[in-house]
């Protein structure tokens, strides 16, 4: 059956790679829409919520595009995939930009990696930029076909700390062990970029496109 997959476009970051990666794994009959129209987002079968940049800019852009309600509604009601800032803004509060209120769907905070922390005698570089391992700490249908501790591509300086540790389905070590993937009912969100993570990333998106809740 043909599906419509909406990629939410609120002007934060380049969505071309995200939409191309989804087109790459979707069925030929599926439609991939890059849109900021709340009506289209709410009528889509699946929603992808990417994002790049600073927390305050992201929140301002979501608000400017009148997307707060549509994002929250979609995240509660249909298969929903958050990527990078599209994960972080779902929480309540970020330390970034001297404190930024977020969408508040998921109780918890967003914290910065500790400065000046040394790992194996070397200073921890911030942002974390590159391929790190994701430990599948809980079973989830979207992990199908992806090996335990597979590497994905990360670019970030902040990470999520949900109040409910039960939401964490993947963890990653970078100076600290942090929640790199969280999932709750119809929602799945990653700190890394599946659209830049070669075969494992594409497999994850393929699993999302075929996810039956």
């Amino acid at each position: 059956m043909s599906k419509t997959i909406a990629v939410i476009d609120y002007g934060m970051g380049n969505l071309r790679s995200v939409s191309k990666a989804i087109e790459h794994v979707a069925e030929a009959s599926d439609r991939v829409l890059v849109t900021d129209d709340p009506a289209l987002i709410l009528s889509a079968d699946r929603v992808v919520f990417p994002g790049q940049g600073a927390a305050r800019d992201c929140m301002a852009a979501i608000s400017d595009h009148h997307l707060n309600q549509a994002v929250l509604e979609a995240a509660r009601s249909k298969p929903f995939f958050g990527i990078c800032m599209g994960l972080q803004v779902l929480l309540q509060f970020s330390d970034e930009n001297r404190g930024t209120d977020l969408l508040g769907l998921i109780p918890g905070k967003v914290r910065r990696f500790p400065e000046q922390q040394a790992v194996n005698g070397q200073r921890l570089k911030i942002p974390q930029m590159g391929w790190n391992q994701v430990h599948q700490s809980r079973e989830h249908p979207l992990w199908q076909g992806i090996p335990q501790d597979a590497r994905f591509y990360f670019v970030h300086s902040y990470f999520v700390v949900p109040d409910d540790a039960g939401l964490v389905v993947g963890t990653t070590d970078y100076g600290v062990s942090f929640a790199s993937v969280i999932a709750y009912k119809n929602l799945f969100a990653t700190q890394f970029h599946p659209e830049k993570s070669a075969d494992h990333g594409l497999q994850l998106l393929r699993n999302f496109v075929h996810w039956d809740i």
Binding site: R16, S17, K20, A21, H24, Y153, E195, K196, S197, A198, G201, L202
Partner: peptide
């Protein structure tokens, strides 16, 4: 860049 980014999914 457009062509490469459409089919090569790494940074």
């Amino acid at each position: 860049v457009e062509q490469v980014a459409s089919e090569v999914f790494i940074p």
